[in-house]
Simulated assay, not measured.
Amino acid sequence: MQHRRPRPSKKTKALTATVVALAAAAGATVAQAGEESKKCTAFDTVTLGKYYVNNNLWNQEKATGGQCVWDNSRSGSTISWGTDYSWANSGSGKDYDVKTYASSVLGWHWGWKVDKATTGLPIRVGDRKPVQTAWDFSVSANPGTMNVAYDLWLHTKNTADWQDQPTDEVMIWLNRQGGAGPLGTKYGSVSLGGAMWDIYQGDIGWKVYSFVRRTNTTRAALNLDDFTQALVRRGLLSDDKYVSGIEAGTEVFKGTGRLDTEAYSVNIG
């Protein structure tokens, strides 16, 4: 099953470099409003330290329904947040179309919403900086078609802004439900982080590489540099590219469900 990735919309491009003042010093726990203060408008965001949660409804014109996000907490570089949704196809919408990708964002997403200096990005692939990430979550799809995945954006320069289309996108699928499948065709497989992954490659105006875990999980402790280096070794990605953005969330094709992130962090270097 194939899906297309988002092209920048006017609302996405409108992200600014506004720095949101934090209510506590770095490293302190910041209590948040939680599920009772859901944000349900397309491209609503919640800033959590160096990250922000984005209600990215980039393809909602192909569906009827809705989706919300909310924040729970932040402690240092670890955040907790959630999303729930209910979507059905409408108009030209098909089962294989991804409708939304509510996600946490670190760094670039057609611009910089959080002060760039706080994100640790971009990083040059060839510099081999470790990108340690941990993600504990629960997921339900009743019924539905969706995945839970990381999404990395890459550019040829370290000064990418809202107008710069990525050259490469790297997805890392941890969990999929209802027959969800990646873009493109299978290239091969690799063992990373204690699991086997099938590698897919496609092209939608930029290269898309998807690592699909052979067995579902709801917990990850990965070095994302291992995945970009797996592509470098296969001659699929050049090591002079820059990782500009790192996202983590759920792509929804259709159905009703939710994703609850109990703890999520990314630490670079």
Rank of each mutant, 00 (worst) to 15 (best):
A134Q: 14
G120W: 06
W112Q: 05
G107W: 04
S104G: 15
L106T: 06
W108D: 04
P130R: 10
I123M: 09
P122A: 07
D136C: 10
F137Q: 00
D151V: 12
Y101S: 06
V131E: 09
A134C: 08
G126N: 13
G107F: 04
L121P: 05
T145N: 09
T118V: 11
W135H: 03
S103L: 09
Y150K: 07
T145R: 15
W112V: 12
A117Q: 11
F137R: 00
P130L: 10
A102Y: 02
K157F: 08
I123H: 07
T145L: 11
V139L: 09
W110D: 09
N147I: 00
A141R: 01
Q132C: 05
A141W: 00
D115R: 00
L152F: 06
S103K: 12
S138L: 01
H109M: 13
S104K: 01
W135Y: 08
F137K: 00
L152C: 14
V105A: 05
L106H: 12
V139H: 10
D115M: 02
L121V: 09
V114P: 07
R124L: 15
G107R: 10
K116V: 09
S140H: 00
G107I: 04
A102E: 05
P122R: 04
M146D: 02
M146A: 15
K157S: 15
N142F: 06
R128Q: 13
G144F: 08
P143E: 05
L106F: 11
T118S: 15
K129L: 08
Y150A: 04
W108F: 15
W112S: 07
N147S: 03
K129P: 12
W108M: 12
V125H: 10
V131P: 03
D136P: 14
W135M: 01
P143I: 10
A117E: 12
P122W: 12
T145P: 01
M146T: 06
F137P: 00
T145G: 11
T119P: 10
D151S: 12
V105W: 13
S104N: 08
N142P: 08
A102L: 11
P122L: 13
K116S: 08
K157E: 05
S138I: 00
S140W: 00
A102R: 03
T156D: 14
K129T: 02
W135T: 02
N142M: 11
P143N: 11
T118H: 06
L121T: 11
T118I: 06
W108N: 12
H155I: 03
A141Q: 04
A117R: 12
L154N: 04
L154E: 04
Y150N: 13
L121M: 05
Q132N: 15
L121H: 09
G120T: 11
R124D: 13
F137E: 01
W110K: 02
T156H: 08
